[in-house]
Amino acid sequence: MSLQISCPHCGPRPVEEFLYGEIPVVPDSITDADARDLDRAFMRNNPEGPQTERWFHLFGCRRWLTLRRDTRTDEVMEAG
């Protein structure tokens, strides 16, 4: 099943109309400033489960939206 994303301005559209954007979250356990920079630049949480993420509606309003999606099933849990 193809992923559908609900754009708050344009309505539900197929995922191919959007660009994926990640919200980098550096764990609090990393305290050193350089280590935090390294983590933000390269490391990924890559969760197996719900993740809050950003999508850009390239084919429509050209605005970012926030989405919560389960990466195991691609189920969209709530649109922000």
Partner: peptide
């Protein structure tokens, strides 16, 4: 068009039409 057109008239809609942002 792979998405549903609005039913009200007049209406404005945007999205991929034939793979082009329309």
């Amino acid at each position: 068009c792979e998405w549903e057109l609005p039913r009200e008239r007049p209406a404005f809609a945007q999205g991929s039409v034939a793979g082009i942002p329309a």
